[in-house]
Write a protein that binds this DNA or RNA. Structure first.
Length: 413
RNA sequence: CGGAGAGUGGUGUAACGGUAGCACGAGUCCUUUGGGAGGAUUUAGUCCGGGUUCAAAUCCCGGCUCUCCGACCA
């Protein structure tokens, strides 16, 4: 993409109504536009990042047999009354509206919806297990939306639901999801910590949160550096400085961002909604369920909280809006022509390039490049072209190298 | 929902109760080009509603919004 055609502009200063690091940088760099607290529009740059995160998640969900669908945002009151959640639990944070005589809510989560769908299709043990997911905008009346993308009232969420014929089969899948989530986070440049959290009232054991260490987070976790023990502060009996009950190392206590949460649901929903299947011996049984949430938009915020410096964002490779930021210094006709051709060559090689072809001073282009945070910056100028080369610099490093134009494509791959 | 702070062009800021100004941005033109360049010209603002006053961005009341702390967060 040619930067001269990007309709968004960068800001020299952060808007004063944002304090969180992710919101300051995302707004300065033109990734998001604020509508209300906790409600942001994804501008072209921001949407590219969000889509990349979603696609990583989509790939990994498919790797664990997830089938994608897209449920409705509108949810009828009737279905929520089957589980008695319309006015209780999460129903309290649901945005609700009335149309003639029917009341609907905007989906804050979809256990009821998916259970309703599944009970209409799945009747036999032969159809189990099954895992279904969607990536969709969720709506929740957060009493206090805050921290940019970290806690919104309207936010992107991947929700996966699994249905099993036995507890054993469920547990096996639950462990698979844990691994899958860690892999997703790793691909997003994050190190996830599986953290035990409360059973949310109806679950006897723990649920599990995927926490990313960050000062910008609103949770606090107690964890072992070896990662064999971690608990959310709300339930932890131990504090930082004590010994890990598993390996004896000294536990740490730090702030963190919860990017995902997985729940063994047991038969809570299948029982309330009559989701039965016929087992091998012909008996009618309740399906065992699990649900697994992961927030792409919150993950995007977390990535910035973790990967930035004083100048701007430093995107990890796989989630960056573009792979290369090509900058042309000196806006002479000759240089423009050469740079444009180089830009097209790179695109032909399937490389995503943001090409700064604007008639701006070098300093402004460099500052914008640092702010936007594309992992690789390539500079072409009369100076470098004289050697048939370009300057290459990683956003995360200081070092600048000369590289032959013909080698750039290879370097990126 | 409790507590604290704050609302002035797109962004950041200034103005004792008395002419709403500055910088950046954006638009047009010219010059310039290795870390946010210069000139000319244009654009655009006091959150909303009441009140006090000859006069309100400024004082008072009500509302709305934003930020932060807490509560909440299947």
């Amino acid at each position: 993409m040619r930067q001269s055609q990007l309709f968004t502009k960068t800001l020299k200063e952060a808007p004063k109504d944002e304090k969180s690091i992710n919101a300051k940088f995302l707004r300065r760099a033109g990734f998001i536009y604020k509508e209300m607290a906790g409600t942001y529009t994804y501008l072209p740059l921001g949407l590219r990042v969000l889509r990349k995160i979603e696609n990583i998640i989509r790939e990994e969900m498919e790797n664990i047999s997830g089938q994608e669908l897209l449920m409705t945002v509108f949810q009828p009151r009737k279905i929520w009354e089957e589980t008695d959640r319309w006015s209780k639990e999460i129903g309290k944070v649901m945005y609700k509206t009335r149309e003639d005589n029917s009341e609907i809510g905007l989906g804050p989560t979809h256990e009821e919806m998916i259970t309703d769908i599944i009970r209409n299709y799945i009747k036999s043990y032969k159809d189990l297990p099954i895992a279904i997911f969607q990536i969709q905008t969720k709506f929740r009346k957060e009493p206090r939306a805050r921290s940019g993308l970290l806690r919104g009232r309207e936010f992107d969420m991947k929700d996966l639901y699994s249905f099993h014929d036995s507890e054993e089969d469920f547990k096996k899948y639950y462990e698979q999801v844990k691994k899958s989530y860690l892999k997703i986070l790793k691909r997003c440049g994050l190190s996830g910590i599986i953290t035990e959290a409360s059973g949310a009232g109806f679950i006897k054991g723990f649920t599990h949160e995927f926490q990313v260490l960050s000062e910008g987070g609103e949770d606090t976790i107690i964890y072992c550096p070896k990662r064999d023990f971690a608990q959310n502060r709300e339930i932890a009996k131990l504090r930082g400085g004590r010994k890990c009950p598993i390996c004896g190392r000294i536990l740490k206590e730090e702030k963190s961002i919860e990017v995902g949460n997985i729940f063994p649901l047991g038969t809570k929903y299948s029982k309330a909604m009559n989701a039965y299947f016929i087992d091998r011996s012909g008996l009618r049984k309740l399906m065992i369920m699990g649900c697994y949430g992961l927030g792409p938009s919150r993950t995007m915020g977390a990535i910035i909280e973790v990967h930035h410096d004083e100048k701007g964002i430093i995107w990890p490779k796989e989630v960056a809006p573009f792979q290369i930021h090509l900058i042309q210094i000196e806006n002479t006709q000759k240089l423009k022509k050469t740079a444009a051709k180089f830009y097209q060559d790179l695109q032909k090689q399937g490389i995503e390039v943001l090409y700064d072809d604007r008639d701006r001073t070098p300093g402004e282009k460099f500052a914008d490049a640092d702010l936007i945070g594309i992992p690789i910056r390539i500079v072409v100028s009369e100076r470098t072209l004289a050697k048939n080369s370009a300057e290459i610099k990683k956003r995360s490093e200081k070092k600048v190298e000369l590289i032959k134009l013909s080698q750039v494509g290879k370097y990126v791959k």
